[in-house]
Design a protein around this nucleic acid. Structure first.
Length: 427
RNA sequence: GGAGGAGUGGCCGAGUGGUCGAUGGCGCAGCACUGGAAAUGCUGUGUAGGGCAACUUACCGUGGGUUCGAAUCCCACCUCCUCCGCCA
């Protein structure tokens, strides 16, 4: 969430940056108005409170001096105390209500884009930074889409999955299931080697956790909810892993913290009706390796670059052609200040498709989740910076392999680095 | 699910109605001692909001209540521990 003090002190700057995400979408004026009211109320209230505290102390002193409880002075003080309390009982709820309203409004505001995030209205204005692996783009024109070759090989089953659950689910069978397991192990091993500590978190989380990372309150319709229990199926491991440190004050020696996690992810894909209806690209349930970083604010930009490199390393090891996009202000996610997308080449589509999204949230999530650190020898606390990225989405990687590694005879060559994990060289 | 116990500042841990935001220790910072360090001694050190200086308010798991006054009493809830029950 944004800092109310920054909104108050630099309203034009904040509004200008919010407008970069979309003109006339966000308005900080109501917040400024409520904030002003709230501070006036607070000033009144705390003055009264001070008097109330004073009365309490005076009575205490008299009692300690063995003054009779029926002494007129004591009775007068008690009477005044009651009057003050009556007024406070009106001011307090009013102030609380204002604070609640302000918080609700601030939680609706997205992060401010970084100064070096390219300005643009939407995805067409994202900037392509680099491409890798052109030489691995298949030249064979006969490539079947991954869902066709997958069903042909008997390793993907969409029809039964729709029966079990709904559309947008898949069941992996035999070598398909094994390939997924191999990819999970391979990716985790690589990221652990790169210095990330593996965690296996809960995949159901409460509303507070979803709010800290920015999924709530604004995107409630995107999540699967277990209403009876105030629990949500996680849309990404980012949620539980980031919340591991919610409401904590870390010492600066512990930073940076790098975690990787394999989890299933669940998304309702509300608003995606009709898009990517076939195959592994857009499912309600998919698996993903997530990378999450907690870092000192001074290092977050550099940590962002290495995060992307760690994700790219997986694609390079698998020899899958991809490109790196720098998302523009109109396309970065709600909580992100800056974001790189990795897109893998998908022959059946004849284009690159997102396989990883690496974001720097700066202090946006830390503020929501109250994740702070204390620098040794310095006074006070600061919010840490959080970053995360996929490293990588498993289903989309499978899709990319089934297509890019498809042989003219309909078999699938297994990427070299996976062969030892899978125990075979071809599907 | 049942019974009992507990939740206090970065950490540990005292405090059961009255100048308690809270004794003490660890940690951290400064100073002294030292060739330097360790050890030791002295001093300082919670977080957050408002004025942004003096000052002031809130915070002792969370939310209510009693009282002039609550970390301390009452109610509800949450979490953790122990035992019992059930169970992958």
């Amino acid at each position: 969430m944004l800092d109310i003090r920054q909104i108050r002190e630099q309203p034009e700057l904040v509004q200008t940056k919010l407008d970069l995400r979309g003109a006339d979408v966000y308005d900080i004026q109501p917040i400024l108005a409520l904030d002003k009211q709230q501070r006036e109320l607070e000033s009144n209230r705390s003055q009264l409170q001070a008097r109330s505290n004073e009365i309490g102390k005076l009575v205490g002193q008299k009692m300690a001096a063995k003054t009779a409880p029926t002494d007129p002075e004591i009775l007068a003080l008690k009477a005044e105390g009651n009057t003050v309390k009556a007024t406070l009982s009106e001011l307090e709820p009013a102030e609380r209500e204002l604070k609640t309203q302000i918080l609700a409004l601030i939680l609706q505001l997205p992060n401010l884009p970084s100064d070096n995030t390219p300005v643009g209205k939407g995805e067409e204005e994202n900037v392509e930074l680099r491409k890798w692996g052109d030489e691995y783009i298949p030249t064979n024109p006969e490539i079947l889409p991954h869902w066709e070759i997958g069903e042909k090989l008997g390793i993907l089953n969409f029809e039964s999955s729709a029966k079990l659950a709904q559309s947008r689910f898949v069941t992996l069978i035999g070598a398909g299931a094994a390939l997924e397991r191999a990819l999970i192990s391979f990716m985790l091993d690589r990221q652990i080697a790169a210095g990330y500590t593996e965690v296996s978190p809960p995949i159901l989380v409460n509303t507070a956790s979803m709010t800290a990372t920015g999924q709530l309150p604004k995107f409630a319709e995107d999540g699967f909810k277990c209403a009876e229990d105030d629990l949500w199926l996680i849309p990404t491991a980012e949620v539980p892993v980031t919340n591991l440190y919610r409401e904590q004050i870390l010492t600066s020696e512990r930073l940076p913290i790098h975690h990787c996690a394999y989890t299933p992810c669940f998304r309702r894909e509300a608003g995606s009706a009709g898009r990517d209806t076939r195959g592994l690209i857009r499912l309600h349930q998919f698996n993903k390796i997530e990378l999450v970083k907690f870092v000192h604010p001074d290092t977050s930009e550099q940590e962002h670059e290495t995060l992307v490199m760690n994700a790219e390393a997986i694609l390079q090891a698998l020899k899958l052609p991809y490109r790196v996009l720098e998302l523009c202000t109109g396309d970065i996610g709600f909580s992100a200040a800056k974001c790189y997308d990795l897109e893998v080449w998908l022959p059946s589509a004849g284009k690159y498709r997102e396989i990883s999204s690496c974001s720097n949230f700066r202090d946006f999530q830390a503020r929501r989740g109250d994740i702070r650190f204390k620098e040794t020898g310095k006074k006070g606390t600061q919010f840490i910076h959080t970053l995360n990225g996929s490293g990588l989405a498993i289903g989309r990687t499978m899709a990319a392999i089934l297509e890019n590694y498809q042989q003219p005879d309909g078999t699938i060559q297994i990427p070299e680095v996976l062969q030892s994990y899978l125990g075979r060289t071809v599907l």
